[in-house]
């Protein structure tokens, strides 16, 4: 009888193999499984005006994401959760290097949204050792702005989360967020373009209770996939929940970078993932799939 009782409560999404490993809100905004291709993800290119030399160095280092079978020198292709390919975000082999992949949307309803993803991370397997503290961090961010009829006080809001895996060789393993805005740098001469490197290593803050030991398998070429869920309310522009694997985190102390609304970015809904290396070795972040859903 337990089976019957449970069946009555099973969400309809459980019957859909593509959705059954997510817990989406009622409306699927996008379901990106990278076995289907790039699914609208691209590199985060920096702003510039007149000359590409005006791009800030933090952005100039970015390169295009890849579709990867997680091919390794010793074991061949690891493949993804349920197929061949994952989106691969690779840094350059220089300590502190970062890379970012982004999906750019706008929202049609300022209400609750939920981002879920299956991800994993490893350094490039250039050494025959565990290398568990070679990746500094991986994480994600939203870049959001209110609609154009919001009125005075409208904001551009950028919730940032990262898993600080290691810092200067110390295996830290804790979730962090960032709320302190970084300097806005005007570019060019036409007063139309600015830039700010919001992923700079400064001003990350520890999430209260944010320590978490993730599965990091025994050599650099074995990976295990992790589940991430982040809830945000576009009406109040506040975070309403965060989960990684079996842990729900208290987000009452969380806040986002907040800037005055910009004149070109109304209803912006951008989602980005990033990787950062702590040593002179490439860091790889792999996304198997990303599900973005909303309650509207």
């Amino acid at each position: 009888m337990l089976g019957n009782h449970r069946a009555a409560q099973v969400p309809a999404t459980w019957a859909d193999p593509a959705l059954s490993r997510f817990d989406p809100l009622p409306r699927i905004i996008c379901l990106d499984d990278f076995d289907r291709g790039f699914c609208g993800w691209t590199q985060l290119v920096g702003n510039y005006e007149n000359s590409i030399d005006s791009m800030l160095p933090g952005y100039a280092q970015h390169t295009s994401p890849m579709l990867s079978s997680l091919a390794h020198w010793d074991a061949g292709s690891h493949n993804s959760v349920d197929g061949n390919y994952a989106l691969k975000i690779a840094t350059r082999p220089r300590r502190g290097a970062q890379n970012v992949a982004i999906k750019r949307l706008t929202f049609r309803e300022a209400g609750p949204i939920r981002m879920e993803a299956y991800v994993t991370f490893k350094p490039e397997a250039t050494e025959l050792k565990l290398s568990e503290s070679d990746i500094r961090s991986f994480g994600f961010l939203f870049d959001l702005q209110v609609g154009d009829r919001h009125g005075a006080g409208g904001e551009r809001v950028m919730p940032h989360m990262r898993f600080l895996n290691a810092r200067d060789g110390e295996h830290v393993q804790r979730w962090q967020f960032k709320r302190r805005s970084v300097p806005i740098i005007p570019l060019g001469t036409e007063n139309k373009t600015i830039s700010h490197y919001h992923l700079a290593p400064e001003d990350w803050e520890d999430l209260s209770g944010g320590e978490q030991h993730l599965c990091y398998n025994e050599i650099p070429t074995k990976v295990n996939w992790h589940y991430i869920r982040f809830d945000f309310d576009l009406a109040s522009m506040t975070c309403t929940g965060f989960r990684c694997n079996d842990r729900d985190f208290d987000m009452s102390g969380f806040d986002s970078l907040r800037l005055p609304a910009m004149k070109n970015l109304w209803c912006m809904l951008n989602l980005a993932f990033f990787a950062e290396t702590d040593v002179d070795k490439r860091a790889f972040l792999y996304l198997d799939s990303v599900c973005l859903s909303g309650d509207f």
Partner: peptide
Amino acid sequence: RTSMSAIVARNETWSGDAATEPYEAGWA
């Protein structure tokens, strides 16, 4: 068919020995 335009070196000044970052594309 899947296609992709990947930027592997942008505004990089090459001298001596130089190379792009690796690009993985076993699907192509």
